[in-house]
């Protein structure tokens, strides 16, 4: 099937969504996502950040779609023409969505553990306005404990439903869902019943904001002061592959998370033993430093690209006939 996104044509198999097709082309045209997670069925469609304009439905029916559609849940048709960043309308609508998402968000990034690896931060930085037009009180909830390892800050939640889908699909019994309605809707466990499941910790990894955080890591370190390393071990749990990311400070493992791909999505969910109980370096086979996107604040501690930059600068300086200031006399 041929689909054109922002003027770039690509051939994709049947059943591909617009979002997946856009991701195949590259990050330049891929719409941002908050609630979609490729490993979780029926996820996506809620946050509306990935909305795109379909200017031609298909070759058979070339009419445009009347409303912008959620690209993560709309399958491509042969001959579909999609506008994402080339449509000012879409960008304006996306700006609106970001504003709505931030409306009741406390913006407590300075004290939030997710800061630095927060999808909402990235989204707001890329697509949001500089200040808010909302002048009323924000909704407030008390932080609650979900089990002994997970903290829920409902204030920060953007209702992406990813954690609900994890509990439905990855763990065995669902004890976690949404209660109340509309603005008052909140994520909660079944009558405050704690999640104690082998895979419950994955709700932390899928949370795009700081609503669900790891209690064993809380307030220990800002993520950009840690060194992420990819590592693995032979996990006894048959469902867990033991492929993880270790967040190190010196020789100490501060936390263990699942590996995330380029789009910040987890593909191999890890069990709680790997996540919480294996905090010694000897437990793991360390593969090497994680490739972190140069634009991420986490890459602060990875000086590779800075070295490259230095080399480039020096080359320029040399070409211009400057003295090499880095050379020791």
């Amino acid at each position: 099937m041929k689909v054109t996104i922002d003027g770039i044509e690509i051939d994709v198999p049947k059943g591909t969504t617009i979002l997946q097709a856009a991701r195949m082309i590259g990050p330049e045209v891929a719409p941002p996502t908050m609630c979609y997670h490729s490993e979780l069925k029926t996820s996506g469609g809620y946050c509306r950040t990935c909305i795109v304009k379909v200017t031609q439905g298909s070759t058979a029916n070339p009419n445009p779609m009347p409303k912008p559609v959620a690209s993560c849940r709309t399958e491509v048709m042969d001959g579909m023409v999609v506008q994402n960043v080339t449509s000012p309308e879409v960008l304006e609508a996306r700006k609106g969505v970001v504003e709505f998402l931030l409306l009741n968000h406390p913006l407590d990034c300075p004290v939030c553990d997710q800061a630095g690896e927060c999808n909402l931060q990235d989204l707001a930085y890329g697509h949001g306005a500089a200040n808010t037009r909302y002048e009323f009180e924000r909704r407030e909830f008390d932080p609650i404990d979900i089990g002994d390892k997970i903290k829920l800050h409902m204030n920060r939640c953007i209702m992406c439903f990813r954690c609900v889908k994890v509990c439905e699909q990855i763990t065995d019994g669902r004890v976690h869902g949404v209660v109340h309605r509309g603005e008052n809707a909140e994520i909660s466990t079944y009558i405050e019943k704690a999640i104690d499941n082998d895979f419950s910790g994955n709700v932390i990894d899928v949370c795009p904001v700081g609503a669900l955080t790891d209690k064993t890591f809380r307030f220990k370190q800002r993520v950009w002061f840690t060194n992420p390393m990819d590592a693995h071990r032979n996990c006894e749990n048959p469902k867990c592959k033991g492929l993880v990311r270790l967040w190190l400070k010196g020789d100490e493992i501060l936390r263990v998370t699942a590996r995330k791909d380029q789009w910040d999505e987890v593909h191999d969910f890890i069990c709680n033993t790997c996540r919480y109980d294996k905090k010694k370096k000897t437990d793991w086979v360390i593969e090497g430093p994680t490739q972190v996107n140069r634009h991420s604040v986490i890459s602060q501690n990875h000086y590779n690209h800075l070295n490259e930059l230095k080399v480039q600068v020096m080359k320029q300086q040399k070409a211009l006939g400057f003295m090499d200031i880095n050379k020791q006399p």
Binding site: Y46, G96, F100, L101, L103, V178, H180, G182, E183, N184
Partner: peptide, 16 residues
């Protein structure tokens, strides 16, 4: 009052 809270524009916008 009646917004279900699933998608963000309606959940946040109606209250606003």
């Amino acid at each position: 009052h009646e917004s279900c809270g699933q998608c963000s524009p309606c959940r946040e916008g109606t209250g606003w």
